[in-house]
Design a protein around this nucleic acid. Structure first.
Lengths: 185, 185
DNA sequence: GATTTCCTTTGACCTATGTCAAAAAATGAC
DNA sequence: GTCATTTTTTGACATAGGTCAAAGGAAATC
């Protein structure tokens, strides 16, 4: 899914608007395992995942990596806090397979928000959608058994569930890798 | 905190704009324990909590009430999904003490979003803030001990923590009331 | 101010899931 | 194809926090 297709699917931009908006995005090929943002950095770029997948994760006190979110095709990938409030990111952003992303700087997207009311609306709608998804995850984590949480994962990220290391999924779901391995049987 | 103060604190509206916007909100006095929205209803109204506090909660398969969020003074209170996507609410919205709220309908706020770019921006910023808070809760729930989660609660809702029944807080934090009671000692 | 109802605490016991360690399987490098 | 590395599975054991039941306290109602 191209970025213009994505934008148009949410708000009806004119062709001129789309051209202008698109011109602020830069296409990048990112190789597997590359870290786009490091924990502690201020995230200055928003990424749109055209092809591939990524995750956000942090390293806890015991040096263990905890996956916080997965990003599939057609999603914006960023450390939302850090990007929008320009505060140090709690997370690393990592690309999990060779990927194609479109990137845009904070200044540029703020300019687009200011220039186009429609773009601001898109920002609001995308954020609302993210909010809904996080609430769903929260419910899964808070009140479901390990088995049910895995089912939630399969429903939410069907394409990702079978392509990333088990440990990433386990930490995303808030359980140990051993438990997830036992569940999957 | 009045609604106009709140709006102005986020985006610099002119006095005329504020007057117009405010005219779409209706002040309501809501008595303690009133349910504003029932689980399963489509949430047609957004509430701004001027005075008082509320919560969202649902009743699970075993008939137990699970608190999902608390709403303090100066916050918007709604079942975000239900209101913005006009889908059945997963939650009840309940006022916990006698409260003063400003309410606005979905149609009216959509009109305001459409009329004022600044209002759309406000919507985006408020949603982003909510997103950040939910992510914080998620982290607390997912990776912290019961004790640490209670500390998170005290930090996030200091004024609320001592004013609502223990059971509401326990379910909000994803633990049993007995566990919370033991922790508090 | 007595009664009823609701809320909180305490105790005893149980279980889902964590941790640690090692084996087995899969993947990647040469 | 072989060796090295990474990932997944398995087993044994530990524990945080759950459940159930009952007793105390607080607070609303008459």
């Amino acid at each position: 899914m191209s970025i213009t297709e994505f934008l148009s699917s949410i708000v009806p931009f004119t062709q001129d608007e789309l051209n202008d908006i698109q011109s602020h995005f830069k296409k990048e090929l990112v190789p597997k395992n590359q870290i786009l943002v490091h924990q502690g950095d201020i995230c200055k770029t928003l990424y749109f995942m055209e092809q591939g997948m990524g995750r956000s994760f942090y390293t806890n006190e015991n040096g263990k990596e905890i996956t916080q979110w997965f990003f599939g095709i057609g999603k914006f990938m960023t450390s939302a806090d850090s990007f929008f409030q320009q505060t140090p990111s709690l997370y690393n952003l990592e690309v999990l397979v060779d990927s194609v992303v479109f990137s845009i700087s904070k200044e540029d997207i703020d300019q687009l928000f200011a220039k186009y009311h429609k773009m601001e609306k898109l920002g609001r709608l995308v954020t609302t959608e993210m909010l809904t998804k996080i609430v769903n995850k929260l419910n899964a984590i808070q009140f479901q058994t390990a088995k049910e949480r895995y089912d939630y994962m399969l429903a939410e990220f069907p394409q990702i569930a079978y392509q990333v290391p088990l440990g990433h999924i386990a930490s995303y779901l808030g359980m140990s890798q051993e438990t997830l391995s036992r569940i999957r049987k």
